[in-house]
Design a protein around this nucleic acid. Sequence first.
DNA 1: GTAGTATTTAACCAACCGGTTAATAAAAGC
DNA 2: GCTTTTATTAACCGGTTGGTTAAATACTAC
Lengths: 225, 225
Amino acid sequence: MPRKPPSRWQRDPEGMRQRILDAARAEFAKRGSDGARIDRIARAAKANKRMLYYHIGNKDALYLAALEGAYEHIRDAERKLNLEALAPADAITRLIEFTWDYFLENPEFMALLNNENLHRARHLKRSKKVKQMHSPFVALLADILRKGVASGAFRSNVDPVQLYITIASLSYFYLSNNATLSTIFGRDLMGEDAKAERVAHMTDLVLAALRRGSTAKLDRLVAAS
Amino acid sequence: MPRKPPSRWQRDPEGMRQRILDAARAEFAKRGSDGARIDRIARAAKANKRMLYYHIGNKDALYLAALEGAYEHIRDAERKLNLEALAPADAITRLIEFTWDYFLENPEFMALLNNENLHRARHLKRSKKVKQMHSPFVALLADILRKGVASGAFRSNVDPVQLYITIASLSYFYLSNNATLSTIFGRDLMGEDAKAERVAHMTDLVLAALRRGSTAKLDRLVAAS
DNA sequence: GTAGTATTTAACCAACCGGTTAATAAAAGC
DNA sequence: GCTTTTATTAACCGGTTGGTTAAATACTAC
């Protein structure tokens, strides 16, 4: 049977590729890599299924491309963050807010990370691209901590890697697990008040923990007062 | 063709049911609900596939049963934790360690939670069973905080729900995302030293944040000394 | 303007999958 | 001891899925 193509089509390989990647990221984030469907990605990209294989590759390659794109996006946002002119405590506050805002506005990133951890990072491990995208945040944190100690605002001996993980964890867990936490607590964790409370709590907790004197010396000062 | 059953088999409906649930939990935790396969669960349970439908139900019902079992398990462990005789700071330390140990020893629980959040808790919302399994932890935390403020060890105005989420997040994120974090940082976060460091950091950070005086009053005391 | 290449469409395929049907046999009940 | 019920096994099925093949057409190069 002679095939009848639709109205004239134009070549647009770059546009096609971008639409495919956008659709892939959304689908993999929403359904996970096992629940995602090639046909749904094609439909969302307004492309023939063959296009996915032609432009990018099989499902696994598509997923890795989506993951790399997500990392590229966050690294880009991280580099734009400029904390140089801020006092250490303000810089920490800004960092916490940035992390929270990023996860809040890009839940697909957390979904892709969760999926990647489910698969024990086996795709990430194969990505040369992501290996080269180092987060500037640990170095940034080390610098902020150094300045804080020097100025007397912060106590010493805080590991920047641990602090980085902690700052990420405070937002990530709340936002990524909000569905089960909201169900368990019988309250909407994503309400405006709830979110504002959470940000305030995180900032307060981290700054309180970093403040110089929040150790045995503080106990002596408090006892003497 | 006449079917030939294997050597004699005995009825063991309770044993069968338990093996099915154990196999289901392992499979859903390892592969997610979309990646999990009914045939693999049956094989691991040493059961005919029909048995899964006969004893429990379809794939969704099986998954919900596995999720409920996981919640039952953690609630059981939480109830066994007895902090009454501990000083507030020691109680907080113990709570952090319990949370860490539980997630470390039961990674399947985190995997199931991640999967459930991917599906926006739509199974959990249907579970009457889990709704009735309230965590004793928030009340426990409220009590510890009260005692801490009364004894002068802790500052006031810390929300027990926020603190609960924070304590859970510090361990959960580290352990659940250890595959991607290890790959990104180029270091093994699950090494013995790394884990010990993490526990120490979490405990130090939370206690430092709770300590009375880690506010503006501290600044005044430090300035006056 | 024609041949070649790249991009795109349409249709197809083998394997897989969740779930069902039919049959067998162990145990219970009378 | 025979009938009924319950638990279990074996085989089957329709639909879905990732991936491929074949063909058509837009565009490029000469």
